[in-house]
Amino acid sequence: MEALLDILLAGSFWAAAVRIASPLIFATMGELICERAGVLNLGIEGIMVAGAFAGWMAVYSGLGLWPGVAVALGVGMAFGLIHGVLTVPFGLSQHVVGLGVTLLATAATYYTYRLALPEVTAPPRIAPLAPLPIPILSDLPLIGPALFAQTPLTYLAFGCVLAVSLILYRTPLGLAVRAAGENPGAVEAQGLSVTAIRIGAVMAGSGLMAVGGAFLTMSAFDSFFFEMVNGRGWICIALVVFGAWKPGKALLGALLFAGFDALQIRLQQTPLGADLPYQLFLALPYVLSILALVAMSRRAQVPAALMVPFNRGER
């Protein structure tokens, strides 16, 4: 118990939680935008892999860090375009297309990696984004290191949540996106193009997923490994449900999951960790997330037209 208290009172724990949450926040916002428009994007896992690789590779090839983030964004949007075209105008199964995009993006990434770096045994390192402590605020206890001594990409993740909220609830564009996920017929009857809105949402969302992946190679770490994304995309899909399709609640979910993850690493170092198999600790954030998901999402309002293709002029 004392050990737990020590962990929770250390600034490094909170800083780690926010750091672990950052890629989840980007990708969760991306998935949320897609689902709000009515498209389930199971390409998320693969798009994160592609984004992680693309950003890192761009920097390794000589581009700056921010141009590298832009490259990741562009690669994500390209996969989003593939997903959107297949699921929206062609109306194919969103599950099949999504898993297909994940396989395609993952395989294309590994292929490109092998082509670009045929002889390396250990992947080369880049100089990642450095932490940017904010004067005065970063000296606050606990929340200082957690919120004000992170890399710029983490700040951007929080800004992204704010932007997504404002756009969804305060602009005509966001209204159209939400309506497209509720009743595409209503959108069409008001003279808007459901196809354009949905493809646009999937592209924007996929771009954010890729930036989430790029966070791993360009901010959290400085290199690219296979298996690096390691199921984070699937977690984000659960986080969208946990957040009841609302950006603020989804952010909370991402922080909660990341907090459990940071906690379990530290619990492994305690005397308790010596007695229990470490796999139990690894499973902890997932178990707790499932419990929280069940508790939180029971009364959530699913976008009514989620996974429902819209065919113009159909009787």
Partner: peptide
């Protein structure tokens, strides 16, 4: 042709402004 989780006001104004307008 109504989106049921949206309010009356939101359903009515949907599509009456340019999608790129900053606020409504």
């Amino acid at each position: 042709m109504l989106a049921d989780q949206l309010t009356v006001l939101e359903n009515v104004v949907l599509g009456t402004r340019s999608l790129w307008a900053p606020w409504f």
